[in-house]
Simulated assay, not measured.
Amino acid sequence: MQDRELIQDWESAGEANRHDYSVTLKSGKIAIIELKGCLDGNNTNIFERPPQAQEFIIWSVCSNPGADPRHNAWSGIHTRLSAEIISREQRIDGVMIWDMVCGTIGRKCPKTEEHKTRITEVGPFTLPPPCIYVMPATIASPRNNPNPTAQKLEEVEILSAFSECFKCLPEEISYVDFSVEHRGAETMRTTKIKRAGVVQQESSPTAIRRS
């Protein structure tokens, strides 16, 4: 991405930080990336948007060949991340699912099965396009912001750079909307995922109960 001038620079954040990578974008903004394993794991709940982050994304590296990334994405985004975003007011600009098992025999990628030209070769690696989920720019709040909708892809520069570099198509980008309301003593949130303007999955209102 740096060679193709889609970002200015990047660095590993080191063991002293909760996050993993800091990226200086073409615009000069700082994007912070925090790596996670499979999104249905308890570790997904543990994240912190650092103060210097102008963009903040979660990158899921789920290298267990038996894992189902589509199931993990829904479990992670609705069951885990949405509750943390709303209750702790920790904004996440997007989620990316992409690892070294994607596109292999163990986890065939439908994006490249019939379209081999969409593979990106980097040294010895052949990489399919990542799965990208764009989140709202604001925190859902029952009184002040009950229905925040996803940002546009181009509004999250780090995700737009990944998309351009690794040959994503517009209709493959997922957009996540949240709705939140009070029902009695409970705070209820609803998660909706759309692609190409079509709702792919929507939860029923679910109470936020953090362990």
Results as ranks from 00 to 15, higher is better:
residue 146 P to E: 04
residue 182 H to M: 10
residue 185 A to N: 04
residue 57 I to Y: 11
residue 97 I to T: 07
residue 189 R to A: 01
residue 163 S to C: 08
residue 175 Y to A: 00
residue 43 N to G: 09
residue 186 E to S: 13
residue 80 R to A: 15
residue 189 R to D: 01
residue 110 P to W: 05
residue 206 T to N: 05
residue 208 I to D: 11
residue 4 R to D: 08
residue 158 I to H: 01
residue 189 R to I: 15
residue 176 V to R: 03
residue 7 I to T: 06
residue 104 T to P: 11
residue 161 A to P: 00
residue 8 Q to N: 08
residue 20 D to L: 06
residue 202 E to M: 11
residue 147 N to V: 09
residue 98 W to I: 06
residue 26 K to I: 05
residue 23 V to W: 07
residue 183 R to T: 03
residue 31 A to P: 09
residue 211 S to Y: 04
residue 200 Q to V: 13
residue 8 Q to A: 09
residue 29 K to T: 03
residue 9 D to G: 07
residue 3 D to F: 14
residue 107 R to K: 15
residue 179 S to A: 09
residue 108 K to E: 13
residue 124 P to I: 03
residue 12 S to N: 14
residue 97 I to A: 02
residue 204 S to W: 00
residue 77 I to Q: 00
residue 125 F to N: 12
residue 155 E to T: 10
residue 30 I to Y: 03
residue 183 R to I: 00
residue 79 T to M: 07
residue 7 I to N: 01
residue 2 Q to E: 10
residue 27 S to D: 01
residue 52 Q to D: 12
residue 179 S to Q: 11
residue 172 E to T: 00
residue 45 N to G: 11
residue 85 I to F: 05
residue 26 K to M: 04
residue 81 L to W: 01
residue 169 L to D: 00
residue 156 V to K: 07
residue 59 W to V: 10
residue 109 C to D: 15
residue 131 C to F: 05
residue 23 V to I: 14
residue 19 H to C: 13
residue 45 N to Q: 10
residue 28 G to K: 10
residue 9 D to Q: 05
residue 94 G to F: 05
residue 81 L to A: 02
residue 44 T to E: 12
residue 42 N to A: 14
residue 182 H to A: 08
residue 177 D to G: 05
residue 121 E to W: 04
residue 99 D to H: 15
residue 58 I to D: 02
residue 130 P to I: 00
residue 168 C to A: 12
residue 27 S to R: 02
residue 50 P to Q: 14
residue 46 I to V: 15
residue 35 L to I: 08
residue 134 V to G: 08
residue 80 R to H: 15
residue 138 T to C: 01
residue 118 R to E: 02
residue 161 A to M: 05
residue 123 G to L: 10
residue 124 P to M: 00
residue 122 V to D: 05
residue 81 L to G: 03
residue 139 I to N: 02
residue 53 A to G: 02
residue 155 E to S: 12
residue 119 I to E: 01
residue 109 C to Y: 02
residue 205 P to I: 05
residue 6 L to W: 09
residue 145 N to T: 01
residue 63 S to I: 12
residue 132 I to V: 04
residue 208 I to R: 08
residue 108 K to L: 12
residue 163 S to H: 11
residue 49 R to S: 08
residue 48 E to R: 15
residue 64 N to Q: 10
residue 100 M to W: 12
residue 4 R to S: 10
residue 67 A to R: 06
